[in-house]
Amino acid sequence: MKRAILIAATDPKVGGVMVFGDRGTGKSTAVRGLAGLLPPIKVVAGDPYNRDPAELDGRSATATVPVPVVDLPLGATEDRVVGALDIEKALTKGEKAFEPGLLARANRGFLYIDEVNLLEDHLVDLLIDVAASGENIVEREGLSIRHPARFVLIGSGNPEEGDLRPQLLDRFGLSVDVRTPTDLAQRVEVIRRCDAYDHDAAGFVASWKARDKAIARQLTKARKALHSVDVPTAALETMARLCMALGADGLRGELTLMRAARACAALDGAAAVGADQIRSVAAMALRHRLRRDVLDDTGSTARIDRALDEVLGTASQMQASPHLVAAE
């Protein structure tokens, strides 16, 4: 899960992350802790859309703020999500003014929805649409406004509470499954850390600050390196073959796989995408896209592993004989 979120943070184009998991595995806690990890961004001071000063031909004052991580509460109404008429201004001054909503606040950051499956359908459709286009268009109450809304959508859900529509799942770039740790030592460690936090929250945060900083540095470096990471043709072929072997519909799977592998390489500090990166992101990029046996969700990760072994087996043979590739 941590890796998936870091990949999505490195390259927002990967698309959102969907986190499935057992109860009490700290899904929400992990996402809410994200803001502290990410390097802060520069914005136009006081801009409700957190726009980059460079975008606005930067003459305005700038401010440095933490990356927005916006939590979409379940009871939210549509007008607060997309933005609507500013009721206060209308009531007190008789003006028609636009009050930006949560989508505006999440621009250039993350939008987190806990229990996606309980959110109302029309809100989910709207979010997916905006997340894909990167722009929020408001046409209501005589207002006509468009503003940038580029954010990484992070959803979480419990599969026992009901399934998600396959169309919706497909729009999330990555999907990960979080399980309760079964190892006693790990569980003890989890509880001890929680206990320490309960006892002295400030001290706990301070003691982890160094590690948080290290992750932030890794992320900054990865973002810079992202454009210089090479995706060799052989790797692309491997990905295509993998998707074909698994019968994943559409090209979204391959695109996501490519972007995720590249981001992963950037995080690892590798110069080019290799078999290791593909192996580490294949499951999260593809496991929710296998249409053939939608009911058998547990088996899909295993199926991907098997396909990986087959495809990467042949790929490594090809790399072993480079003149063969050259001859083709």
Binding site: S28, L72, A76, T77, D79, L85, I87, L102, L118
Partner: peptide, 20 residues
């Protein structure tokens, strides 16, 4: 789920009726 979120967070986020 709404109550569970409040138990988790210790706060209520109101995003309703044009208020936040």
């Amino acid at each position: 789920a709404r109550m569970a979120a409040v138990l988790d967070r210790g706060s209520v986020a109101v995003e309703r009726d044009g208020l936040s």
